[in-house]
């Protein structure tokens, strides 16, 4: 599925929640169901800076698509990662580079998370895009 379509799906799901509590509970559930990253990839090199909690991201090219795995020591952060991975993983690097991230605002994540955490979110997206750029260069 296209990134845009997946993002619309996520926005639809979040629109069903009435309040922050349901939104957070959903994110916590998503965090708990996030497939685990291979322990070997939880290295200092793979830590994203700018998050108060630790976040590891690993990227791997499978044929022409980029697959992300990630983990965090905080569960709400894991929920955010799960949403990002759903939107961006298993996509062509060029599509990841071109994708916009407005859906983050639309699901009320940026507005509802503290500024430091929002920065962590921005850092995560930046890191995913950097991986995409690196692998796109490799494909060229």
């Amino acid at each position: 599925m296209q990134i845009k379509k997946i993002q619309e799906e996520i926005v639809d799901e979040f629109s069903m929640f009435d309040d922050w509590m349901q939104r957070y509970e959903y994110m916590i559930d998503l965090g708990k169901s996030l497939p685990l990253i291979n322990e070997n990839y939880k290295t200092d090199d793979n830590i994203i800076k700018g998050c108060q909690s630790k976040v590891w991201v690993h990227a791997e090219l499978e044929e022409d698509k980029l697959v992300f795995t990630a983990d965090s020591d905080a569960i709400i952060t894991k929920g955010i990662i799960a949403i990002l991975i759903r939107a961006f993983s298993n996509q062509k690097p060029q599509d990841i580079i071109d994708a916009d991230t407005d859906f983050i605002d639309e699901i009320g994540l940026k507005e509802h998370l503290s500024p430091t955490r929002a920065n962590g979110l921005v850092s995560m997206i930046k890191q995913l895009k950097l991986y995409a750029i690196a692998y796109q260069t490799q494909l060229n």
Binding site: W20, M21, Y24, Q52, S53, D73, A74, I75, I76, T77, H112, L113, S114, R117
Partner: peptide, 21 residues
């Protein structure tokens, strides 16, 4: 078993300002 950051985020939603980290 819980990360301080998760607790702090929810406390904030409940109007309680604490520091985490």
């Amino acid at each position: 078993g819980l990360h301080p950051y998760d607790i702090g985020s929810i406390l904030d939603k409940l109007g309680v300002a604490v520091r985490t980290g």
